[in-house]
Amino acid sequence: MKIVLIQLLLIVVVIITAVRLLRGRGARTQAARRLGLMLFAALAVWSILFPSVWNQIARMVGVGRGTDMVLYALVVAFLSFTLTTYLRFREFENRYTKLARRLALDEAGPPQPTAGVPRQQEQPYAGS
């Protein structure tokens, strides 16, 4: 009976997490992620109800136990998560760098000075 209780608990947690994640702001690109997430949630529930599936998968690919299989899958998932997060951060950094640069340049004004630097004011450029 104890096993049933932990199963119930885990299923509730998985569903809550999935629902929360599904409620993200949406665009077309998110559709794929949501389908994947639903698949992942279904798989999670399935493996909670039938833990032996991991053993079957493990045996299929030549890994000893199901727990090892889960660990390997987790390592791969974590690494890909780290990488995609890093790349997304880089993209984000690019965007706010461009924004900050635009602000800085607009604030500084054009390179041909109109005011601000005294010496250049008294030296109008011949070419402009």
Binding site: T97, A100, R101, L103, A104, L105, E107, A108, P111, P113, G116, V117, R119
Partner: peptide, 14 residues
């Protein structure tokens, strides 16, 4: 700026 350079200021460290 006092030394005579034009200064462009980033709003934060980039």
């Amino acid at each position: 700026a006092t030394a005579g350079a034009r200064v462009v200021r980033h709003p934060f460290n980039l």
